[in-house]
């Protein structure tokens, strides 16, 4: 019987060999560590930019409002080329690896310590059954731009096996099989319509 909790190197290799856990391309076996797998910074980025609109509006998506993605600029690199992280700039990138998680495994992403020490940090949870490259949002708290080579191992994923299985596609999903970073769709949350009605109809 498979144990629950944090998966170790042997567990991870078994899952990959059986095809239950997909990580493609896995360029080096050494990416699989004792309790985590290193993932590489991919070649596609979204970077925040200043535009004509004064602020990001995460309230209900309306015809009159600009999409949140309009605050981001899309840019690509070839593997091996560099990308600059600037202080206070929001950056989303896709992992080089396309991931598919088993229905009973959750993944937690963090920056590898070598990059955390430079001020780069991230915090992302990947739900069981997820498939796609992972959009990683990076917060950079340093005060000097940092050059990072695309394809470098920037983040690590820890994998936890859960008690039961979950069905990723049971509910509506905003991010499916993505291979490039996708800007926030916070203003597409369905319950925002309810909150909008509450604000309009109850406090006049």
């Amino acid at each position: 019987m498979d144990h629950k909790g944090l998966l170790t190197k042997g567990d991870l290799k078994t899952l990959i060999e059986s095809g239950d856990l997909v990580i493609e391309p896995l360029l080096q076996d050494s990416q699989i560590g004792e309790i985590s797998i290193d993932l590489r910074i991919g070649t596609d980025f979204l970077t925040s930019q200043l535009g004509r609109d004064p602020y990001l509006d995460t309230s209900m998506d309306g015809e009159q409002k600009p999409p949140l993605k309009s605050f981001f600029n899309e840019t690509r690199r070839n593997i091996g080329e560099s990308f600059l992280f600037h202080p206070s700039q929001v950056v989303l990138f896709s992992t080089l690896e396309y991931i598919k998680l088993p229905k009973n495994v959750i993944a937690i992403l963090s920056t590898r310590s070598s990059y955390s020490r430079l001020g780069l940090s991230t915090s992302t949870i990947i739900q069981p059954g997820y498939c796609g490259c992972i959009s990683v949002e990076v917060n950079y708290s340093g005060n000097t731009p940092i050059k990072v080579v695309t394809g470098a191992r920037l983040v690590q994923a820890r994998f936890y096996r859960l008690e039961g299985e979950t069905e990723y596609f049971n509910g509506p999903r905003k991010y499916i099989c993505q291979v490039r970073p996708i800007a926030s769709k916070a203003n597409e949350d369905k319950d925002l319509a309810v909150l909008d009605r509450i604000a309009r109809d109850n406090f006049e």
Binding site: E24, P25, L27, L96, G132, C133, G151, C177, V179
Partner: peptide, 21 residues
Amino acid sequence: YHIVNNLIEKSISNFNVQEIW
């Protein structure tokens, strides 16, 4: 539409990356 296009794009780019690596 997005799934098909994304899967095509990543199939190609994975092959390219692995080859160059």
